[in-house]
């Protein structure tokens, strides 16, 4: 989760648990970027990502009493989002569908980044299995270490490491020359 989410205090969580609407709204605002991004990059379309984000926060509102701390909250959101996305992908008949160009979601916050890089990374992400995709996103979007990824996905740590190694290998083989695809969007 991002820094704003990490900084969400236990006090605010307590207020949200007590039913304060403003605290609940603050909680959603603090964590929605992470949940939405995970959902978007797992599922591939904005509509599906928005539906999943809404489902996760609905489930959270019913389970607030069981959340004991802001750290627990972040862990819970990652876990529920990842598991729901993996389940959804496994239910779908064609999980490797590549969206049309206009449907390729924004992968980066860098608006002036190279769209070709976005497109290429998007294709690479979609070529991975649901579990491997989740591992990769938790590692490089959420910046979790393999132990935390294993806890989040209920997966043996060796499986996590294996997914990471294989995914990076695939990405390295398929990735284009980094020079023309630099993500920073600097003018040549």
């Amino acid at each position: 989760m991002n820094e704003a989410a990490q900084d969400f205090s236990d006090e605010q969580l307590g207020k949200a648990r007590a039913g304060e609407a403003a605290a609940l709204a603050a909680l959603i605002r603090a964590h929605q970027r992470s949940v939405y991004s995970l959902a978007l990059r797992m599922l591939g379309t904005r509509d599906l990502a928005e539906d999943l984000t809404q489902d996760v926060f609905m489930q959270l509102s019913g389970n607030l009493k069981s959340i004991v701390s802001s750290t627990h909250l972040v862990f819970w959101l990652r876990k529920v989002t990842s598991h729901r996305a993996i389940d959804q992908l496994r239910r779908r008949a064609r999980i490797e569908t590549i969206p049309l160009d206009e449907e390729i979601p924004q992968l980066s916050t860098v608006d002036d980044g190279d769209p070709l890089l976005h497109r290429h990374l998007w294709r690479l992400l979609l070529s991975l299995s649901p579990s491997a995709r989740a591992v990769l996103l938790l590692r490089y979007q959420e910046d979790l270490d393999p132990i935390d990824i294993a806890r989040t996905l209920d997966m043996p740590i060796n499986t996590v490491k294996s997914h990471l190694k294989r995914s990076l290998e695939v990405l390295r083989q398929k990735a284009p020359n980094p020079e023309p695809l630099r993500c920073e969007g600097k003018s040549p």
Binding site: T53, Q54, Q106, S108, T109, V110, Y140, Q141, L171, E184
Partner: peptide
């Protein structure tokens, strides 16, 4: 490059408003 490309993105403001209203 992966970390840079996979930084979290925000949903639309309209979605956020709807989400907060629905959860509340």
């Amino acid at each position: 490059r992966l970390r840079a490309a996979l930084r979290p993105v925000a949903p639309s403001d309209e979605f956020t408003r709807d989400l907060i209203a629905r959860v509340a």
